[in-house]
Amino acid sequence: MNILLFMIGCVFTHNIVFDRLLGVGDAGKDRRVEVAAVYGLAVCAVMTLTAVCAWAADSLLLTPMKLDFLRVPAFTLIAILISLLGQVCLGKVKPAWLEQLEGCALPVAANVAVLGVALMNAEAGYSFAYALLNGLCSGAGFLLAVVLMAGVREKLEFSRIPAPFKGMPITLISAGLIALAFIGFKGMA
């Protein structure tokens, strides 16, 4: 039962963007809802794989050999490799999606959330199952956040936002109001 609660927690209560505040800059970029969905899916996939590989690298390699200060470079390397791998196979499976990612999946690896989740797993010392679930659900939470923000940004397209607030400021304020709504999930997990 607590696995289910943990999953709901990762997606809704401790949403990676609105509660744990990782990957906000990338979530807030101006994109159409379809592109946002594709980007979210890509990040979710890379995040899950990275979390798994990071857990493997960490528990098998780094901790036994007391090299945990090398976590950050190691996880970054893993993230880069996975996103390149992802780009290659995405190119074969669904080239249309690849264009929407502007042809290069590497920025996905540069997403703060991907590395953040891997580090969180390592520091919290999660078992394999929890590490995988954390990666997957946080990725789903990121997808939800990106799509919601893309939807809201599209609704605000013709709003008469004062000039200095156009662009990132209004995106942050919208994210803040969405985060205010997400507080409703508090206590669920």
């Binding site: 809201v152 609704k155 605000l156 709003s159 008469r160 936002i161 004062p162 607030f165 209004i170 304020i173 919208s174 109001l177 205010l180 709504a181 507080i183 409703g184």
Partner: peptide, 18 residues
């Protein structure tokens, strides 16, 4: 901040209550 009547995406009274 969102531009006045018709431009916000949350109900003002409800957001304020939250």
């Amino acid at each position: 901040l969102f531009g006045g009547l018709g431009d916000n995406f949350l109900n003002p009274a409800l957001a304020a209550r939250a």
